[in-house]
Simulated scan of single mutants.
Amino acid sequence: MSIKILNSPIFASIQDIGRFSFSNIGVTTSGVMDEYAYFMANQLLENKKDENIIEVYYSNFNFIVNCNTQIAITGAYCEVYINKQLKPTWQTYSLKKGDIVEVSKLLSGCIVYIGIKNGIKIPKQFGSYSTSIKEKIGGIDGRLLKKGDILPIENICSFNKRKISSKYLPKYKEELQLRVILSYQEEYFTKEQKNKFFSSIYTISNEFNRMACKLKGEKIDCEIDGVISEAISFGAIQIPKDGQPIILLKERQTIGGYPKIGTVLTIDCFKLAQLRPNMKIKFKEISLNEAQKKLKEFYNSFS
């Protein structure tokens, strides 16, 4: 009982919510880039909320099933074909042995999520299914998925067709405002530099991946060149010597020595993940209390 990958995906991996409590030994968190789409897929399938999922960049993912199963496709809007018939996303589909699924042309966003009822049957490593390319752990031998891979799943006999209401469907815009909590070394950035940071529009560079997103735009100056290497959180905004902000994401290094002006609100990083190079970013300050409130509301909605 399995699915078999029929083509050569551009960048696809098995992920879950991530790997925690191992940064002290240099193991990154990893995990899905867009947690909203991830939670929605598992909710559609009535899976455990931390079940594994297939994360596919830029679509281009075809597979065949050799048993009965159910899938949910969320994330970027794309053309999905089941046995050559075009299907909408953000809902479940029941599949039987021999059915072929093709995740094709992207319409909006850039990361597609393919959830499978009860997940892919692989062991956890360091408490997670997530593939971490840098450390070569998790997923299938710690690597990206490739043509010919056979992923073990359960045979499912009962199905419930479900779809997400239109009011909960995300809109992927080409310009995004990211809320930022001033933190870390913010006292080493003058008021003038902070005002410049929050009033500028930045462009996403080609250096954008699961590790980080480097921006292009107004140079931000810091009164110090660096700091003693310290732990780095998801969403931390490093300001290197060239003054171009770098937002650190799921496969970030665990420590770093560049000064950091603040941290992007976690749930806004999920929206950032669906953008592409040359799209625009603007920052807005948010208080710690307000950030905590927004974060609690988000995770409580999936509890």
Rank of each mutant, 00 (worst) to 15 (best):
Ile133Leu: 12
Gln125Thr: 08
Leu176Phe: 03
Asp141Thr: 05
Leu176Arg: 01
Asp141Ser: 10
Asn209Glu: 07
Gly148Thr: 05
Cys157Val: 13
Tyr188Asn: 11
Ile100Met: 01
Gly138Pro: 03
Phe189Ala: 04
Glu175Ile: 07
Gly148Asp: 04
Gly217Lys: 01
Leu107Gly: 09
Glu102Lys: 14
Gly148Gln: 06
Ile100His: 02
Leu215Ile: 02
Glu186Val: 10
Lys216Asp: 10
Ile181Gln: 11
Ile220His: 07
Lys147Thr: 06
Gly115Phe: 01
Lys87Met: 15
Gln193Ala: 10
Lys96Thr: 12
Ser183Gln: 08
Ile201Tyr: 07
Gln91Leu: 13
Asn160Ile: 15
Ser130Arg: 02
Asn195Ile: 12
Cys213Tyr: 03
Ile156Trp: 01
Pro152Ser: 06
Ile204Gln: 06
Lys191Gln: 14
Glu175Val: 06
Gln91Cys: 14
Ile120His: 02
Asp141Pro: 00
Met211Gly: 03
Val101Glu: 04
Asn155Val: 01
Ile164Asp: 10
Ile140Pro: 02
Leu145Glu: 00
Leu169Glu: 11
Glu79Phe: 12
Tyr202Met: 03
Asn83Phe: 09
Asp149Asn: 13
Cys222Gln: 03
Lys105Pro: 11
Gly148Asn: 06
Gln91Ile: 11
Cys213Ala: 09
Lys196Ala: 14
Gly142Leu: 01
Glu207Asn: 15
Asn83Gln: 13
Thr203Asn: 06
Lys167Glu: 15
Tyr168Cys: 14
Lys216Ser: 13
Val80Arg: 03
Ile100Thr: 09
Met211Phe: 06
Leu86Trp: 08
Cys78Arg: 02
Asn195Gly: 14
Asp149Ala: 05
Gln177Phe: 08
Leu178Ile: 10
Gly119Asn: 00
Glu174Thr: 14
Lys87Ala: 09
Tyr172Val: 13
Lys173Trp: 07
Asp221Phe: 15
Gly127Phe: 00
Gln193Ile: 10
Thr92Asp: 09
Ile116Pro: 01
Tyr129Lys: 06
Lys216Gln: 13
Leu151Val: 06
Gly127Ala: 07
Gly119His: 01
Ile122His: 01
Thr190Glu: 12
Ser158Ala: 14
Gly115Thr: 06
Arg162Asn: 12
Ile201His: 08
Leu107Trp: 14
Ile150Ala: 05
Phe198Cys: 05
Leu144Asp: 04
Ile164Val: 13
Tyr93His: 08
